[in-house]
Design a protein around this nucleic acid. Structure first.
Lengths: 330, 330
DNA sequence: TTGTATGCGTTATCAG
DNA sequence: CTGATAACGCATACAA
């Protein structure tokens, strides 16, 4: 019964097989080796129950085949979807994923970056909120939805175009006066362009509109207050609403219900993100859908790319509109 | 401009500080060291921009402070919540989380276990579906909802008790004939006890009941067929339904709506899990709530425990009932 | 092609 | 309390 007396190393396998250590390494790593040797090594490895040790390789090569993903959490369905596809794309490229949840804590964001470096991850993909994020130099770093500098690639969907699309769609669906509700982060992030596109398009179309930006702390209460201000004689001043995210759109709809405003009869609502009930049971609101899969693919591809120079500094991916029951285009 | 010419090591710091390598290691690891030496080392480290390398430590100590979590995905809200709390508890104990998504693929489950071992994780927490899971010997292993053997700790909520609670609640809410819809995995898993508790309690209470178990492939279609079989003269035979999971309960309710059966007026529905809309906006159905936080806590605590022997082989955590709009106890 | 020897950065032992 | 030195398991340049 010699169980886990001592861990079996490549050297042990080499001795057992009657070959040299280097030969074993080559067999394990699928490098060209004489067929007889290959078999001898494989047999010996089998006999001894040899198990490869990735920490040795990591130390030697300074590569871990591991990418750190830094994200607020996975409870938010959009983040869950993003993580899902990121994992898929990383796995496809033979990389592991080290997941770090920040819970929107800015100091944690920096701590995780530090931790990831200590653990010698091969790269970092980050969706963060700290405007003063300390982005390391020597390691591939890709951000989602946050532009820091031209040397740090940022991947985002076409937020401006999404805002334009929402405004157009509301007009097309017969709206006469529309509003956008947006929660503004202090950091001018890519998502803030949603309101810019909305405003720009509304002006161009000659559509009466309003944009309400509220601070990130209590968005829903502030949205409620705004809506009540514009609610007179049992009627909402707007017949079309574009809300910054699907979740907020859903929350706004709850408020509207309480006010006795019907959706989509009295007011049509469009959100942003493309969240589906349970991931595949239809959109929870009419929405501008982010191309999550493509975003993940570009992130993985960029962070693992050898070409560190001459990388695009901002990648914008196209969005699309989808019906979700809160507009009148069934 | 000497940027990343060469990575700074403890030896470099030792030389710069004029002390020995061992001393540097002790300072870094907060071991007792003369105050003067400590300062010298810290200054030198600062000056050189020294950065700790965890791969060296991993090789030397064979510990990575990393726990692998193996789970189908994070798109399912219940899994998302579980991962959320697992991460919290692991982080609290100074461990990193290596997340592996199986997408219910049984061979992948085993591959991830293999991968985790190669990477020398300190332990594995797994929620899997392969009855022939290859559980390694030399590494702490904790399962969720699946009992394999008394040497592999399993953490689950009190599924039997949850089934009892659901039956009791339905009776209490005035039901006269009830049914349980359950998706059975080929592996007799802990969750299957939900139906056992339901049946046992119904019998004891003298409540007419039925249990419908369908294979995991097309649960919803089969549920629909079952419901239509028991739908005669515009009326459902049951006035109370207990469904295996919240998601399935939600899907069943969609089917009932299409059939013209009103919830909760005509039939009351109770699910299982305790899924909330966006994690904190109220339960999506009336439900038996799993103590997710406690499950995560016990998992983390068990997998990191030194006492490998004399660990409980099955930990059952208490559930509770919560109203979610699909019963008549508003 | 195969074999040998060295070093990756850290921890731990053991003698001062 | 400090300092020199030997592993940990692997990859690779270089010699055969």
């Amino acid at each position: 019964m010699n169980s886990d007396r001592k861990t079996v190393t490549m050297l042990d396998v080499a001795r057992e097989a009657g070959v040299a250590l280097g030969t074993v390494s080559k067999v394990i790593n699928h490098q060209p080796v004489g067929e007889k040797y290959r078999k001898k090594v494989q047999d010996a490895a089998q006999r001894l129950g040899y198990q490869y040790n990735a920490t040795g390789k990591a130390l030697r090569t300074n590569r871990t085949d591991m990418i750190a993903v830094i994200i607020p959490n996975t409870v938010n369905p959009y983040f869950a979807l993003l993580v899902h596809y990121l994992n898929l794309e990383l796995e496809k490229r033979n990389n592991k994923m080290l997941l770090c949840f920040t819970e929107y804590d800015r100091s944690r964001e920096n701590e995780f970056i530090e931790m990831a470096q200590l653990n010698r991850v091969d790269g970092i993909i980050a969706l963060t909120y700290n405007p003063k994020l300390s982005i390391p130099e020597g390691i591939p770093f890709v951000t989602i939805d946050r532009f820091f500098s031209s040397s740090v690639p940022c991947v985002a969907s076409d937020n401006f175009g999404g805002g334009v699309l929402a405004a157009k769609k509301l007009k097309e669906l017969g709206c006469r006066k529309i509003a956008m509700l947006f929660t503004g982060s202090p950091l001018t992030s890519e998502p803030s362009k949603r309101k810019d596109g909305f405003a720009s398009c509304s002006i161009e179309m000659g559509m009466p509109f309003e944009v309400k930006v509220v601070p990130p702390d209590h968005p829903i209460e502030d949205y409620g207050a705004f809506l009540r201000e514009h609610f007179r004689e049992g009627r909402l001043e707007f017949d079309g609403l574009f809300v910054g995210t699907d979740q907020q759109a859903w929350e706004v709809i709850q408020i509207l219900k309480e006010m006795g405003v019907r959706v989509p009869e009295d007011v049509q609502v469009i959100g942003f993100d493309g969240i589906e009930m349970f991931g595949n049971h239809g959109y929870i609101v009419s929405t501008i859908v982010q191309p999550v899969r493509e975003i993940a693919e570009v992130c993985a591809s960029l962070v693992l790319s050898d070409e560190r120079s001459r990388q695009p500094s901002l990648v914008c991916l196209p969005v699309r509109y989808a019906y979700g029951g809160t507009t009148r285009d069934a």
